[in-house]
Structures are given as structure tokens and as C-alpha cells.
Design a protein around this nucleic acid. Structure first.
Lengths: 205, 205, 205, 205
DNA sequence: GATGAATGAGATTTCATTCAT
DNA sequence: AATGAATGAAATCTCATTCAT
């Protein structure tokens, strides 16, 4: 009835904020229990909202899922970039810091990660591509550092791709064992993971 | 008079065989698509029976699931043990062979093992313990070799536990990337994974 | 900001009303055929909705069942109380009227009440207690009248409890025989039951 | 293959005995939990036999059910007849003894009764008629005594049928409350029931 | 006579999705 | 923007019944 008034900018912002809230809650839940095991009811409940409301923002569970991952990935990548910005030194030093930070984030904030990142198969095919893209952006940070180290002769690897995959797998998996340790022991565990994974770029000697 | 005749041994064997058939089918499916994504209908279909029949052997999906994992784990471990039996050489040689075989099995036969093995969290607590036990048996093979290599001075590590976790994570994750390669390239990819992971026991130099 | 708005009172009422509709339908069915013989499909059909909808209001068949019985019991008790409100006279007169009304309700409206009320054993323990409580409230009406009559010397009994049990049993059982009579004969049959049962409070003389 | 040899008499007896065992177990179970709630699995389990075996003796659950009731009813009636055979005295004395015995049997042996006897509605219509017939035979014992007492002027009733119904209802219901008493108190409770029910044949005075 | 195995129909339950308000 | 209500498809589970051995 009458002209549909275009959403004011303020409204847009508000909407954006609500969406972020939803995505955060969703990412947490998917991360805790896996995509299949989380119902929209669960998501809604955590937000103190009804199932139906979610459809105002997302047109399907799949879409919500993908968006949740994307958010999570963006945030994660942003934090890693920030770290690199404030860390100086050789590729060795910086790569180790990056690994350490990645694991820390995984353990503290996204026990999620494994289920979300590492299992594109679990996702409907429409979503898979976007998840891979996300992964590429994320990997780029590590890849750049490794190549820098290779160029300078500090690092040796069999194959950059393989190293990246192994590194990523181990880092994302970390929460499932570090997460169970008493928090006192966690710091040390994370350090050990970082030290251990650095070996991957010092192959064959 | 009234003596209840216990099932004959032959019957017992037959039953056991049927159960193994079911478990194999289930393990394959769970391994391919993950627990949640597989319905009893799927399992039944692969066996050419009706859903209901499965309940003659297992009293719930959970029970079937746990048993299937156990089977899968047993089989896997058995294949690794076999490999070790027929492989001679230094710990270095044998560990590399073990990794190679593990990844090969993962890629060829159990692409979704990741979801089953690495995520005890998503299982009802009754099952969790049994899965962890399975994991321990599996890890034992790697652990023994690593310790042997450490004793002989061939290997250096930061922490055996950490190495095991990282190795396991990377190996189980392998199917998600190697699996997508054209089969021609797969062999090389698996080799590279093995070479790369061997670095984990040659830390710090 | 983020204030969760509680469901409006009007909505609450509406929901309550819907629940009552469901409970009434369920109580009727359970009362007619017994708990086991009624499927949620039946209940849904009578309400012209789908099975699934019922789960929006009740989280299981058991829960619906218990609530339905409670409703049935409340209604029944209420009708008896109403009757007492409008009936004057000696305990003798009023007790007879009460019995008569009870049997009438049983025969006309809840032919299967027997199965619901008299057999707490078949209910899960959670429900049993609530059913017993219901029964107590119901019995209280009869008990009060009987004790009044005893006090005034009009009645004689061996044991109030025993009389109550026998009375209740016979009244609830009535539908299984009165219900089969042609409706013309029913009135007389109910009268006879009432007269007969009054003998229970005139023991020994 | 060859002539089917007619079952020897010995076999017949053996068969009969087996059938009785089954019927007893079935009657107990139906009595404890109700017809619907008992599965053939339950019955078979109690007999240490497999479900399938029951079909050798009975062609359906319904048939087993009806036969079970019939057995139970026959046995019950026989025990009551026995009692009457050895009890002398006025109708008053004998009727009271009969009631007492009936309740005793109900409480001790067939908490069953209520669900089996009093609820023809719960049974498929084919069975209903046979159950009613059974009930008639059973009632006949009481009816004869009551009529004797009426003839001699000892008893007064409104309607023999009604008295029988009420009596039967209360007697069969007895286990649900007497059964819960500590066994010490049970004897007294049964006595009270008998005394109370005797009032039904001394109406109006 | 009895068993193990299988079936198929139906019951309970879950959940993504839609929609009127 | 959000809610309460409802739907329908699919999943898990139960059970009377059949049958080859």
C-alpha cells in the first residue's frame, strides 16, 4: 500500500548489527555440535528469538550456515592480519607467531573451526565454493610468509600446498585436545604445537 | 525338560557374519558421509533389507554407529599392523611407510573418517569412551615407532603427544584435499604428505 | 535494546484456549478407547491438524496423555461440585445424587475412564503421582459426604476407605454394562446402580 | 513326504501342557500391563522362547489373548466352585466366603483380572463374545447364591444384575489398592471388602 | 517343534520451512 | 521485524506376522 520506502541508512546499520548477532550465535553452535546436529530452534533459542524470525534475515538454514562461516572466517583472518601488522622480524619469527595466534584463536574462541572449515563435504554443494574461497584467503597469509622464507633460504619444504594443508589441519584440530587440558597447561600445549609445526618448513635437515 | 537350547555355534557364527556385513556397510557409509547424514534407510538400502531388520541386530542407531566405528577402527589398525609386519628397516623407514599407508587408507576407503574419529564431542557420552580407546590403540602404533626412533637418536621431537596429534590431524584430513585430485596426481600428493609429516620427528635442525 | 518481549496476555489466553481444545479432544479419545489404542494421528485428525502440530504444545505423547487426564478429571470433579452446589438435603439425598451424577457422566461422556483412572500402574511413574492426586480430589467429595452422614448417625460403614474404593470401582465400571443397553433402559439402570451402591453406607442392618 | 502321522496321545498331552505354560505366562503379562502394552516379544521372553514359536500354538496375538483369558477364567471359576463344595451354611455365609475367596484370588494371583475381565471394549470384537460368555459362567456362581438367599428371604436387592455388576467391579478392582498394602494389612483389607460388599444384598434395611 | 531372520505397516518424534498477523 | 502456529517430509523405532531351515 503506497510507496515502499527505501530503508534508511540507520535501519540498514541496525539490520546489519542484528545479522551479526545471529551469525555469531550460529557460528558458535555449528562449531560446537556440527551443522547437522544444530537445529534452527537451537539457534533461535540462544538468541531468545523464535525460529521464524531467522527467516527474515536468511532464506534457509544453508544460507545461514554459510554466512556464519564467512563471518567467522573474516574475523579470524582479520585477527591474524592484525597480528602480522604488529609483528616484526624474520619469516621464521613471524610464521611462528602466526601459527601460535591461529591456534590460540582456535582454542579460545572457535573450537568450532574444525567442523566448519575442514569439512566442505558436509556442506551442500552451493556453499562449498564459498567456503573454499574463504579458506584461500586465510591460507594466503601463511602462504605469503612461507614463500618469503623460501626465497630467503630460511625455509625448505617439499611442497608449499602440502605444508599448508598439514599445518591447517593440525592447527584447527588443536582445540579437541588442548581444549580438554586444564587452562594452566594450555599455554604450554599451544607453544609446543607451534614449535612442532615449525618443523614442517625445515624439511630434510 | 524345559532346557533352553543355546544358539548353536554355527548359528552364532552366521549371526556374527551378518553383523559384520552390516557393520561394514555402516562403517563405509558413516565414513563417507558422517553419522548425522546417514539414515538407517541408507544403511538398509545398501544391504538390500528393510530398515526394521537392522533393529534385529542393533537396538538403536547410536549402538550401530558406535559398533560401526569400532569395526572401522579395528580394520584400520589391523591393516597398519599388517604393513608393519611386512616392512623392515629403520624407524625412519617404517614410520614413513606407516604414515603413507594411513593416508592411503583414509583417501581410498574412509574419506569421512575425520568426522568419526576426531570428534568425540558429537557422540553421546556412552560412545565417547569407546572411541577414545580405539584412538589410543591406533596411536599406539605410531607412538611405539616414534619412541624407538627417539631412543636410537634418529628422531628429535618437542613432545611425543603433540607430534602424534598433529600427525593424526593432518593424515585424517588428507582426504579432503587429496581426494579431490585426479587420481593420477593422488599418488604424488600422498607421497608429499608423508615426506612433509616426517619433518615432525626431525625437529630443530 | 534486546528486551525480549514476553508473550502478550492476549496471546497467552489464545494459546491456553488452543491447549484446552487439544486436551478436550485428547481426553475424549483416551476416555473412549484408552491410552494405548489412541495414536497422535487420531488426536490430530479429530482436531483437523497434523500430528506434528501437537508437538508444538506437548513434548511427547505421555505429556499430552497426562495433561488430558488431568483435564478430564478436573472437568469431572467440577461437574460433581456443581451438582452438590445445587442439591439440598440430607447426606443420604446428596450422596445418592452424587453417585447418580457420577455414573451418568461416566456412561455418557467417558466410557473408558476406567482405564485411565483406575490403573495408575500402567503409567510412567512421573504421571502416576499426578493421577493419584487427581483421584484424591475426586474422592474427597464423596468422603466428605460420607463422613457427614456418619457423624449424624445416618450412615454406618465398616471402613470409609473401603467403601470409597468399592463405590468408585462400581461407578467407573458402569459404562461397560449400562453403555450397552438401549438408551431407553439406561436411565433405569443408572438409578438402580445408585440405589444399590447406597447400601454400602448402610452396613449391617 | 509320506503319510502325516496323527499325533499320538502322548504328544497331544505334551502339547496341551506347553499350551498351558504359554497361557499362564500370557495371562500374567496381560494382567500386569494390559493387552496393548504387552508384545509377543515380552511373552516369549518370559517363556525363554522366541516370538515365532508362539505362532506354532496360536495363530495371532488376539487368539493367544482370548485363550489366556479363557484359561484364567476357567481356573478361577474352578477354584470358586471348589470353595463352595467345601463350604456349608446359609447363603449369607457361603456368599461371604465366595466374595472373600474371589478377592483373595484376585489380590494374590491375578492383579490381572481387572484389565482382562472388565474391559471387553479393549478387545477385538471377535474375542468379546467369548469373554462375555466366560463372565456369565463366572457370574452364575454368585447369581445362584444370591437367588437362593432372595428365595429364603435372607437377602434383599434392587436388581440382581446390578448387584452382580457392582460386586464384580469392586472385587476385581481390589488388587489395585489392596495390592499396595503391606502384606500384614492385606488380610484385614480383604475382610473389610467382603463385609462391605455383603451390604449389597441387604438393601434398604 | 522351534529358531533366526526378515518384513511392512504404523507409531512417535524432529525439523526446515511457510505464513497470517 | 518478529511471533505463534501449522505443515509435511523424513527419521527413528516398534511389533505382529511370515517363513525357510
Amino acid at each position: 500500500m503506497g510507496a515502499v520506502k527505501p530503508p534508511s541508512e540507520r535501519m540498514q546499520r541496525k539490520r546489519g548489527k542484528r545479522i551479526q548477532e545471529i551469525l555469531t550465535a550460529a557460528a558458535e553452535l555449528f562449531g560446537e555440535r556440527g551443522y547437522d546436529a544444530v537445529s534452527l530452534e537451537h539457534v533461535a533459542e540462544r538468541l531468545d528469538v523464535t525460529k521464524g524470525s531467522l527467516y527474515y534475515y536468511f532464506s534457509s538454514k544453508d544460507e545461514l550456515g554459510t554466512a556464519a562461516i564467512e563471518t567467522l572466517g573474516d574475523e579470524w583472518t582479520a585477527r591474524l592480519e592484525e597480528l602480522l601488522d604488529r609483528t616484526e622480524g624474520t619469516p621464521e619469527v613471524r610464521l611462528r607467531a602466526l601459527i601460535h595466534e591461529h591456534v590460540t584463536i582456535a582454542v579460545n574462541d572457535y573450537p568450532a573451526a574444525l567442523r566448519l572449515f575442514l569439512m566442505p563435504r558436509e556442506w551442500p554443494s552451493a556453499q562449498r565454493e564459498r567456503i573454499k574461497e574463504l579458506r584461500r584467503r586465510h591460507d594466503a597469509l601463511f602462504r605469503a610468509l612461507i614463500e618469503e622464507g623460501l626465497a630467503s633460504g630460511e625455509f625448505t619444504v617439499t611442497s608449499v600446498d602440502t605444508v599448508l594443508q598439514c599445518m591447517h589441519a593440525a592447527m584447527s584440530q588443536a582445540p579437541t585436545w588442548c581444549g580438554e587440558l586444564p587452562s594452566a597447561a594450555r599455554g604450554k600445549a599451544v607453544d609446543e604445537v607451534a614449535d612442532t609445526l615449525m618443523a614442517l618448513v625445515h624439511i630434510g635437515r
